[in-house]
Computed example of a mutant assay.
Amino acid sequence: MKFRPYLYILIILTTFTACKTRKPVVANVPDVKKVYQSQLDSFLDVAKQMQPVVLNDSTGAAIPSSFMSTVNFNLRKPNYVIIHHTAQDSIQQTIKTFTMVSTQVSAHYVIGRNGTVVHMLNDYLRSWHAGVSKWGNVTDMNSCSIGIELDNNGLEPFSDAQIKSLMLLLARLKKTYNIPTANFIGHADIAPGRKTDPSAFFPWKTLAEHGFGYWSDEVLEPAPADFDPAIALRLMGYDTSNLTNAIRAFKLHFIQTDTSPQLTQLDLNVLYNVYRKY
């Protein structure tokens, strides 16, 4: 009987430990992998089809056609990197969001506050991260880009560990896919007025110093009197159909301390300096 208190303590500790470790980091991982593999198999089946195109002339008569396979082809590769912040509370919440069919949103990579990198989709596959967006003449950014989500609610600075991992990842992507320096941009750049990520806290200057995107020089040449900011923004890639939104997106990226829709002389000088790099 004298050992009973110790037995009770052991039972309590065992129960507490079990409850503490019971919660998984990612829910339904086996199901997620099963769905991923099933969709991948479906894409492979489509890619393996070798049926000729069926065409008919104006009278309805079939035009002779056949499938003669070429030997010169490969996978399409990404040409842009789009950076986001998750606007969620944790990396676990984001991973759960990206593994639910109902959300219809995803990314290739998610980087946690502690620098942990979660690779969620093969780089050659099309992620659903950009949504309705436009950059230059490209109106389907999902088809030509890699989406990287940073675990951040948009109201706080990004951690050093997170940015360090991001820089290493960007260096790998740039080298692997030969991505141009100008093509490292943010979600707000391609969706002005609709998105604001990766927020004014994001260190675009640091990225530019390492070859991922551009930044203005320390010494700025004054913009000429006939300088047209709308044309400059459009040539950089911004959608200027709503000029106010385009200006805000530009300032969120390149000014950061002020995101108002008005362009000061300093803003014009920065815009003139940056646009000449593109």
Rank of each mutant, 00 (worst) to 15 (best):
R126Y: 06
P157Y: 15
V117L: 15
V117P: 10
M120E: 06
T99A: 06
E149P: 00
Q93P: 01
A130G: 01
A161R: 14
T139H: 12
T103W: 01
S106F: 01
H108A: 07
N122V: 11
G147L: 01
H119L: 05
N137Q: 09
V110C: 12
G112K: 00
G147W: 02
V118T: 12
A161D: 14
M141G: 02
E149M: 15
A171Y: 03
L168N: 10
I111N: 12
T116V: 13
N114T: 15
I163G: 10
I111L: 12
A107R: 01
G154K: 12
Q104H: 07
W135M: 03
M100T: 07
T97A: 09
K134V: 05
D160F: 13
S102I: 07
G147T: 02
S165D: 15
D160W: 10
N114S: 15
A171Q: 08
L125A: 04
S145P: 02
Q162Y: 11
L168H: 08
E156P: 01
K134E: 12
K164G: 14
I146C: 07
F98E: 04
K164Y: 13
G115V: 09
T94S: 15
M167D: 09
S133K: 05
L155D: 11
V132M: 08
I111D: 10
N122A: 15
K164F: 14
M120C: 08
S133P: 08
N153L: 10
N114H: 13
L121W: 03
C144T: 10
D140Q: 10
A130N: 05
D123L: 00
K96N: 13
I91S: 08
V132A: 13
L150E: 08
P157W: 11
N153S: 14
G131C: 06
A171K: 12
V105S: 06
C144L: 02
I95R: 00
G147Y: 02
N122Q: 14
N152D: 09
G115M: 11
R126E: 06
P157F: 13
S102P: 00
G147E: 01
R126N: 05
I91T: 10
K164W: 10
E149L: 07
G147I: 02
T103N: 15
E156I: 07
N142V: 00
Q93M: 14
A107S: 12
E156K: 06
I148W: 01
Y109C: 04
Q104R: 06
V138K: 08
L169P: 04
T99I: 06
L125D: 04
H119D: 11
N142D: 15
L121Y: 03
N122W: 09
K96V: 02
L170D: 07
I111A: 14
E156M: 09
G154I: 13
S143W: 07
A107W: 03
G154P: 12
G147R: 00
S143P: 06
N114V: 12
R126G: 00
F158N: 11
S159T: 15
K96P: 00
L150N: 05
L155N: 14
F158M: 12
L150T: 06
